[in-house]
Computed example of a mutant assay.
Amino acid sequence: MAGWTRGERYSHRGDVPDSPGGSDEQKQRAYEMRAEILELSIAVAGRSYWATVLGGK
């Protein structure tokens, strides 16, 4: 991600340098974690329990 200079984007810390990004291994792990979070979110949201909360609204 590109950095910015103080005042350009509400930075109270001063100038913010460019992000160095991540390694290929870090990017792969982040992709795997996002996929797992999506899978778990679908499993939780699909539970029949949620139909009982607030009268099924």
Rank of each mutant, 00 (worst) to 15 (best):
A43I: 03
L40E: 09
K27S: 10
A30Q: 10
W50L: 05
Q26V: 00
A45Y: 00
S41P: 06
G7N: 03
A2W: 00
P20C: 01
S19R: 09
L40C: 05
I42T: 13
I42H: 15
W50K: 04
P17K: 03
A2K: 10
S11L: 02
G22Y: 10
G21D: 03
G14M: 00
T52A: 12
S11C: 03
R47Y: 14
S19T: 09
A43L: 12
S11I: 04
W50T: 00
D18W: 02
E36R: 13
I37V: 12
E25A: 11
H12F: 15
W4N: 12
L38A: 15
W4P: 09
S41D: 02
Y31H: 14
S23E: 07
Y49I: 04
R9Y: 03
G46A: 07
Y31D: 13
Q26L: 06
G46W: 13
T5K: 15
W50S: 04
L38S: 14
I42F: 15
R47W: 14
K27N: 11
R13H: 15
D15L: 00
D15V: 05
E36T: 08
R47T: 01
S11N: 05
T52M: 12
D24H: 08
S11A: 06
S23T: 02
M1N: 11
G55L: 03
Q28K: 15
A43R: 09
G22C: 11
G21R: 06
G21F: 02
V53I: 05
S11R: 00
R47Q: 10
L38M: 13
E32M: 06
G3W: 02
G7T: 03
Y10W: 14
D24C: 01
S48Y: 12
A35Q: 11
L54H: 13
G56S: 04
A30S: 09
G55V: 01
G14K: 08
P17D: 01
R9H: 08
Q28R: 14
G21Y: 06
M1V: 14
R9N: 10
I37N: 13
